[in-house]
Design a protein around this nucleic acid. Structure first.
Lengths: 207, 207
DNA sequence: GATAAAATGGACCAGCAAGTCCAAAACTTC
DNA sequence: GAAGTTTTGGACTTGCTGGTCCATTTTATC
């Protein structure tokens, strides 16, 4: 596969998106290569032609796709955390996104299935977390510069805590089906940021 | 398997714990029944004798074992959140527990592998979350009654947020290998609770 | 339109791992 | 110590799924 014709690229994309859709619906464990083939009207030789690494390579590609989608789904709010209403809008969007997604988290599903033998999967998640946190931290920094948050707040650490709350909320949602925890975590995180505005020194005293 | 002799019970336990140990070390996907057999010096007929449901039943039993262990590992601190130093001690214990555990989270591994077709797995996690949150909430309630936390704080919601932070911190640790997020989430959660002490009305204003 | 490269179809293979089965040994109980 | 039950060993079956292979068709390029 030296080059890729337009047709070839289209086929590859069809396989990738079809696989992602199936995994979103049934989970990784219940999605075989034959399922993907049937669902995308392709043959086995095509799949292995475009993903020489076989299942593993395909799953990794799906993971990347889903990782990208996570941040995309938070735009444009995530990149514009410049006022309290904006933060609230972002919070609502996150909750809504995961409420729609339901119990299955494709990314977690894929990575936990690829497991530790595929370092690429961990890398995808790590990178997602890194940039996600960076964007939140940028928002915190902005608010801090605007005097809405105390100067003693560490933006990265605050963003890390917020991000952890989101992840945990989603994780819990995967078994309970409820977004209660996600909302509680986000609301507490935001309340804490807001509270830091008037009383410098308060935020860090638990560290 | 009408009754279980002492010997039988011991064998069953040996299989269960051996399976749990293997899964802790290598993850679910890389642990076959034959691995368990080899690792516990048992034969296939024994495994299916004590776990008629086969792999699925065994995995579920392992999930229960691990779920129990999670709370046990936090004792006695978890049940005694009655002063700020006690909260801090609990926080340290949690961080330490997961730092020791490393990247693999057996419970998440098992449940995400059993997937949605086994409702029992979700139930185990849900139940764990429920009681975990209840114990944290009890601590919050205690502190509130002692006047250390404002009366307007909802203990269950605060506990939910804290729990989400923990879960997310651990989840992130699974890919990064660092406990940074876990610590940030816990510290922020505790700082927020502490901050609620002096200024009633503050905590809930983000809701 | 000839040639080379890419795309496609689908039969085939191989291996693994879950699960079955039956006979033999050990234990319990009387 | 005999009868019945539980426990154990391990060979065997079976189904599935990832992966290979090669012949054929389509597409690009000149």
């Amino acid at each position: 596969m030296r080059t890729l014709t337009r047709k070839g690229a289209a086929t590859r994309q069809r396989i990738l998106e079809g696989a992602a859709a199936l995994i979103r619906e049934h989970g990784v464990a219940d999605t075989t290569l034959d399922d993907v083939l049937a669902g995308t009207a392709t043959s086995k030789s095509q799949l292995f032609h475009y993903f020489p690494g076989g299942r593993e390579e395909l799953l990794l590609a799906v993971a990347r796709l889903e990782a990208d989608r996570v941040l995309e789904d938070q735009r444009p709010q995530l990149g514009d955390l410049t006022s309290w209403p904006a933060w609230q809008a972002w919070r609502d969007k996150v909750v809504d996104r995961y409420r729609r997604q339901g119990r299955l988290c494709p990314l977690n599903s894929v990575t936990s299935h690829l497991g530790s033998r595929t370092p690429g999967a961990q890398a995808v998640v790590t990178e997602l977390m890194r940039s996600w946190q960076a964007e939140i931290a940028a928002g915190v920094r902005h608010m801090r510069d605007a005097g809405e948050i105390g100067p003693d707040v560490d933006p990265d650490r605050a963003a890390a805590a917020l991000l952890a709350g989101i992840q945990g909320g989603v994780l819990i949602q995967m078994s309970t089906g409820e977004t209660t925890h996600l909302e509680a975590a986000l609301d507490m995180g935001l309340a804490h940021l807001r509270a830091g505005r008037a009383r410098p020194g308060r935020v860090a005293d638990g560290l």
